[in-house]
Computed example of a mutant assay.
Amino acid sequence: MSSAATVVVFSHRAEVRDAVRTAVGTHPASDVGPVRYLECATGAEVVAAVDRGGVDLCILDGEAQPTGGMGIGRQLKHEITDCPPVLVLIARQADRWLAHWSMAEATLAHPVDPLVAPEAVADLLRARAGRPAVHG
């Protein structure tokens, strides 16, 4: 990807959105290109942003209130044609089954690990662009 990828980051808590941006950074991998963040504090903002188009990835806080990221992710997958990939932030590994139910392509655990998050984001952006994941 040469142009900036647009990544929606959703949480009702600004500190969670900040933690995601800090952990992933603006260049998650050398072959992915820059990332531009669109922060959303409500589920309605996420749905409106994705509905407008141009979103390459959604990172949704599964613990958000009053509507959690898993429910929003599932809604997006059912309502948006060519829905961007969804990554759900989970508080416990036991919540992975809920993320699967939400149709998310990936999960990250709270707190967001800066060694793991960029690779997860880069893999989803590569997949969106039709390119294979790079590991090594």
Rank of each mutant, 00 (worst) to 15 (best):
A5V: 07
M103H: 12
D61I: 01
Q75F: 15
A41Y: 11
E63C: 12
R13S: 10
W97K: 06
E105Y: 13
G54F: 11
A94L: 15
T6L: 12
L89T: 00
G25M: 01
L87F: 04
T26L: 13
P28I: 04
A64H: 01
V8E: 01
H100D: 13
A44N: 14
A4Y: 15
T26Y: 12
L98I: 07
T81M: 15
D18G: 05
A94H: 13
Q75E: 09
A4D: 13
A14L: 11
F10L: 08
W101L: 07
V32E: 01
G71E: 10
C40K: 06
Q65I: 09
M103G: 11
A5D: 12
S102V: 08
L60S: 03
S102C: 10
G33A: 03
L76A: 07
E63Q: 15
R21S: 10
A14I: 15
V88M: 06
A29L: 13
R17K: 10
A29R: 13
H100V: 14
S11R: 06
T67Q: 12
G69P: 02
V8G: 00
V7F: 09
I80T: 08
D51V: 13
A44D: 13
P84L: 02
I72K: 02
P84M: 12
G54D: 02
A94P: 07
E15A: 06
G71N: 09
D61M: 03
V8L: 03
G53N: 01
A41E: 08
T42K: 02
A49W: 06
D95N: 11
A48L: 08
E63I: 05
A104G: 08
I90N: 05
E39S: 11
Q93G: 12
R21G: 09
D18E: 11
D56T: 06
Q75N: 05
A64D: 01
Y37C: 07
V88W: 00
A64T: 01
V24W: 00
I59C: 03
G53H: 03
S102T: 07
G25S: 10
C58D: 02
G68D: 03
S102R: 00
C83I: 12
A41S: 12
A48R: 10
D31Y: 11
D51R: 15
A91Q: 12
V20E: 02
F10N: 06
M70H: 00
K77M: 04
R21T: 13
T42H: 02
H27L: 15
A104D: 02
T81K: 14
L60A: 02
D82E: 12
G73A: 05
R74N: 09
D56F: 06
D51F: 14
D56A: 10
G43K: 03
R13L: 14
L98K: 14
Q65E: 14
A41R: 07
L98P: 10
M103R: 15
A44M: 15
D31Q: 06
W101F: 02
G54T: 00
R96G: 05
V16L: 06
V50Y: 04
D31V: 13
V24K: 00
A5M: 10
R13F: 13
P66H: 09
H100R: 14
